[in-house]
Design a binder for these strands. Structure first.
Length: 422
DNA sequence: CAAACACTCTGGGGTTCAAAC
DNA sequence: GTTTGAACCCCAGAATGTTTG
């Protein structure tokens, strides 16, 4: 374990990513290192510990090792008794560096600037990964569609949903992060009709008419994340590829052709819970994008998606698909500021602003320089007005207080003394 | 050599579930 | 019965190193 600690230390001191990979490559045969990395970064191993709940208790030596402890934690429903066991285990470790390493494993972060993606470059498929195609932002890369044919569809605001039917005909359903969704008995009939070795990608939404996009989103999440049998959910499918291709991470079939395949499959079988996301436009006219965005917003929808017609399906974020949505902003009064965590320790983590008698935290949108400035001169900023970008107003079901979804700091409004918002 | 890309890290609101109070 | 903490869902954006054109 001493050697592993030294390697982790080396990785922390190396700023270059290629350098980190070289260090890992050099230690490729170190089985213990491999095991430490797997137990730390495997997203399906969960230990139920946080910075708060880790408080080592001095105790005698344990007969089990760290991996046995981690296996116990990850295979149980975590409770205080198990947390106490973990804390006693930490407290029994005499060597400070060793204890620090174990603490990092429990928190699932070795803090060395490299994660599953980088590790898998050295040991292929060591850390299980589940990747789907993700979109870039249209307003950051509008040039991507220039002169190319593209397809516009509605942007749906639900839960990403990937249906996988493997070579043997077994069907499973996953979220974007690869979490399996169980209890979807209403999908069984449709799933039987899907050919083996097929992946259908889409958005899971509750089948209710006439709800505003944000309410539909909230109700969908409630249903899809609860335990047991789920009702009234539908898959709004927008893409299709083979399971082989999905595992490879790419389908070279063009987007337009994939959408045709999907459309055929759906119309031939007449599914009850799988619905096709309709195409609203195919062509090269860029002015249509904003026109359809405005229509979507007027229709209480989240926005639109622009898909390049000839692009492959790639299991990563790509500018071959662009999301187009509109943000709003409000000028809000700063109530207080808070210190951050991790790399923001000793500087600004978030500001708290007032919105309709509710306090909202805003922690995104600050440069490092601004974080330091605000943290070191709080009186210059508390009580002042900040321009905050947000997507939409939300209300939680607990106390119905209004809040803002995706709040981001834009700029200071020293020219104003009073907040303003709709 | 600048621009684009890839990846990591920190920050948000809202929900469920299980355990703790 | 209510509160709390972890783990999810939806994310946005800054920083930094690497690759590309």
């Amino acid at each position: 374990m001493k050697e592993v600690i030294e390697i982790v230390q080396k990785l922390r001191n190396e700023s270059s990513t290629n350098g980190k990979i070289a260090i890992l490559q050099k230690n490729k045969d170190n089985e213990l290192l491999k095991k430490v990395l797997l137990y730390t970064y495997d997203p399906f191993k969960k230990y139920g510990m946080s910075e708060k709940s880790i408080n080592p208790i001095n105790s005698a030596n344990f007969t089990i090792d760290i991996f046995e402890l981690l296996d116990i934690l990850s295979s149980s429903n975590i409770n205080d008794s198990l947390r106490a066991t973990a804390n006693s285990f930490l407290g029994s470790i005499q060597n400070e560096n060793e204890m620090e390493l174990y603490k990092c494993i429990l928190l699932k972060d070795l803090r060395m600037g490299i994660n599953a993606k980088g590790i898998n470059k050295v040991w292929k498929d060591l850390i299980p990964q589940f990747n789907v195609m993700l979109a870039d932002k249209y307003f950051e890369k509008p040039q991507k569609v220039k002169g190319k044919e593209f397809i516009i569809t509605q942007k749906l605001d639900g839960c990403r949903f990937v249906l996988i039917k493997d070579e043997n005909g077994q069907v499973k359903y996953f979220t974007r992060q690869g979490q399996e969704i169980e209890g979807l008995v209403e999908f069984e009939e449709d799933s039987k009709k899907i050919p083996n070795n097929t992946v259908i990608d889409g958005e899971l939404l509750l089948n209710i008419e006439g709800l505003h996009s944000k309410d539909l989103y909230r109700e969908t999440m409630k249903e899809s994340r609860k335990k047991g049998v789920k009702h009234g959910l539908a898959l709004h499918a927008f893409d299709i590829l083979t399971f082989e291709e999905f595992k490879q991470g790419i389908s070279k079939t063009k987007c337009k052709e994939r959408k045709e395949q999907l459309s055929n499959l759906i119309s031939v079988h007449g599914f009850t819970n799988i619905i096709e996301v309709p195409i609203r436009y195919i062509g090269k006219d860029e002015s249509v994008i904003i026109k359809l965005l405005d229509e979507a917003i007027a229709n209480d929808e989240e926005g639109v998606m622009v898909n390049l017609s000839n692009a492959p399906y790639e299991c990563k974020r790509t500018s071959n698909i662009l999301k187009v949505k509109k943000f709003q902003d409000a000028d809000l009064k700063v109530l207080s500021i808070e210190e951050g965590e991790g790399k923001n320790k000793g500087t600004l983590g978030r500001i708290n602003v007032e919105y309709k008698n509710n306090t909202i935290g805003v922690g995104s949108g600050f440069s490092d320089e601004m974080r330091n400035e605000v943290y070191n001169n709080p009186n210059k900023y508390i009580g002042k007005i900040a321009k905050i970008q947000y997507f939409e107003e939300t209300t939680n079901s607990k106390d119905n207080k209004p809040s803002l979804r995706f709040p981001v700091f834009l700029e200071w409004r020293f020219d104003k003394c009073e907040p303003s918002y709709y």
